[in-house]
Computed example of a mutant assay.
Amino acid sequence: MLYLAMFAWGSNWVSAKILMDYFNAYELIFWRFFIAAFGLFFMILFMNISFKIDKREIFYSFICAIVLCLYKYIFFFRGPFWKCFIRRSFSNYFKSYFNIFCTCCDC
């Protein structure tokens, strides 16, 4: 089973590279998660695992979702804030380097 998982994971990169010529990246991501969810749904039915979710699991999922959204916002939409901190600290040494990459503030 481990060899099958390794083969599937390794061939996924090659197939994604080939399929990028024919499909959009968002379509590939959608189909990848749809097929995985479809397979996991039938695996859960086959193994007779309960679909019941208690309140503690919903709370932890909510906290994880908030942390993930903040992480995405800080590091992908605003830009890393630590570059501006370093830029202010070492402005004489790295002035031209950090002017290019500092996107989170007007420093």
Results as ranks from 00 to 15, higher is better:
38 F>G: 06
38 F>K: 07
62 F>R: 12
56 R>N: 04
71 Y>I: 12
74 I>T: 02
20 M>E: 09
74 I>Y: 02
23 F>Q: 04
63 I>P: 01
35 I>E: 02
15 S>C: 07
30 F>P: 00
79 G>I: 00
24 N>F: 11
78 R>E: 11
54 D>Q: 09
26 Y>N: 15
25 A>N: 12
63 I>A: 13
72 K>R: 08
59 F>S: 14
38 F>Q: 08
52 K>Q: 12
64 C>F: 13
67 V>K: 10
51 F>I: 13
28 L>N: 01
55 K>T: 11
27 E>K: 01
20 M>G: 07
74 I>P: 00
30 F>N: 04
32 R>K: 09
65 A>I: 01
59 F>H: 11
30 F>T: 06
39 G>Y: 06
76 F>S: 05
56 R>A: 02
19 L>G: 13
46 F>C: 08
57 E>W: 06
77 F>W: 09
66 I>S: 01
31 W>C: 03
45 L>T: 05
50 S>M: 01
36 A>M: 15
49 I>H: 00
47 M>E: 02
33 F>V: 06
42 F>S: 08
64 C>I: 15
61 S>C: 07
58 I>R: 05
19 L>E: 14
13 W>I: 15
26 Y>M: 15
62 F>Q: 09
30 F>I: 02
16 A>G: 02
73 Y>H: 15
64 C>Q: 12
58 I>M: 08
16 A>V: 03
46 F>Y: 15
14 V>E: 05
53 I>W: 04
46 F>L: 07
47 M>Q: 08
67 V>L: 15
16 A>S: 01
31 W>P: 00
69 C>N: 15
22 Y>K: 07
54 D>W: 04
71 Y>A: 08
47 M>G: 04
38 F>E: 05
56 R>P: 00
20 M>Y: 11
66 I>K: 03
73 Y>L: 14
59 F>Y: 12
65 A>F: 10
52 K>G: 09
46 F>G: 09
23 F>R: 13
48 N>V: 09
33 F>G: 01
57 E>T: 12
45 L>K: 10
12 N>R: 09
20 M>I: 14
53 I>F: 03
47 M>A: 14
57 E>G: 03
35 I>V: 11
75 F>K: 11
45 L>W: 08
28 L>C: 06
45 L>S: 05
68 L>H: 03
13 W>L: 13
62 F>N: 15
73 Y>M: 14
31 W>V: 02
74 I>F: 01
58 I>G: 08
21 D>T: 12
